[in-house]
Design a binder for these strands. Structure first.
Lengths: 193, 193
DNA sequence: TTGTCAACGGCACGTGCCGTGCCGCTACAG
DNA sequence: CTGTAGCGGCACGGCACGTGCCGTTGACAA
């Protein structure tokens, strides 16, 4: 198979994912159909089913490929400032369109489809969690976090309330809210003098 | 309208909800259909549509009515023990069938259907959160929690990581995990001596 | 240059469920 | 006794599913 061949296949793949995101934003994930994606992108349904086994898998791929949201951690040496900046970036991404509603729908689908849940974890959640713990560990080694503070739990306290607000109460995400969480977390994990 | 009439209507309503939960457990919420519920419960589809506007609304009603999970807070005076007992009860409920998968599907549906999300909040999430904050406030007034600790955030730190594990990583919920969260929270919110 | 073959767009099919009509029955209300 | 509301049953048009088949296209091999 020639590069040319692969290139055109990849082009089609990208076009399908782009159309998927467009349609999802216009009519919502619930009303999204593979039939609709095929029609709008001028593609046979087989061409989609050949690449993805389900609507959920296609949507997952489309969202994760589009974004690669680059939520990388800064490491300025100041753990409080770095966490703050990073979680504010997360709020800015999730708190509004386009990514907010798309990501919400993706997690919703993950509750019905174990394959989507597993792929979401492997491709996004776990790497993100690992980066968070790594940044926390670096701070702990520098003495900015109590040596016995549970870093996995610290990560969960950063992420959990954010997702709780995002998915459950569905109140708007604000910098002010995550600042309050961060404040409470810092009280607990900062070394006692 | 006679009481007899109302009673028989209520009986039918309960029968439909019971069948809904049965079917959801057998084939999963994703494959659940109103047609299937009507068939198994020996009821016309109209009878269902007359009571609920959508599959999501029916399912929400069925899950919340069935459970009324009675996650009430004890108040023994020991806030740490009370929180621990309450969150262990939550883990026991959500961490296994039947309620675990049903509740997961309900939250998943809430990501696609704003009406379900709103009803879930009003009927379960907000009351539960209010009870939690009330119990925390009682402890704060007794001096068991720092007077300036943000109680809404404390509630979010109790709930958030639990939901994060339940919905996102989908790792098993254990007493050990919530104990670790609770430990970290207590470090932060216990008054400094 | 010609033959091969995989991927493709288009079309059609059977299936399942949607939400909504209509029918005739039953049981209660007036 | 008559009217009426709720009901089960049935049928309908519509839509999307997932899967066949068909003819075309374009890159590669002989």
């Amino acid at each position: 198979m020639t590069d040319d061949r692969r290139t055109r296949a990849a082009d089609r793949t990208n076009a399908i994912m782009r159309t998927t995101l467009e349609l999802a934003q216009e009519i919502g994930y619930a009303k999204l159909s593979i039939e609709g994606v095929a029609a709008r992108s001028g593609v046979g349904k087989h061409t989609i089913y050949r690449r993805w086994p389900s609507k959920g898998a296609l949507f997952l791929d489309a969202v994760l490929t589009s974004g690669e949201p680059a939520l990388d951690y800064p490491d300025t040496g100041d753990i409080a400032a770095d966490l703050r900046q990073q979680i504010h970036a997360a709020v800015d991404l999730l708190g509004q369109p386009p990514l907010g509603p798309l990501y919400r729908a993706l997690i919703g689908e993950a509750q019905h489809d174990p394959m989507v849940a597993a792929a979401l974890n492997e491709r996004f959640i776990r790497p993100q969690a690992d980066r968070t713990v790594a940044r926390l560990r670096s701070a702990q080694q520098r003495g900015q976090i109590s040596p016995d503070f549970d870093l996995a739990v610290a990560m969960a306290i950063l992420s959990g309330p954010l997702y709780f607000q995002f998915l459950i109460t569905q109140e708007p995400l604000t910098h002010e809210y995550v600042d309050r969480v961060l404040t409470a977390l810092l009280v607990g994990m900062t070394p006692r003098t």
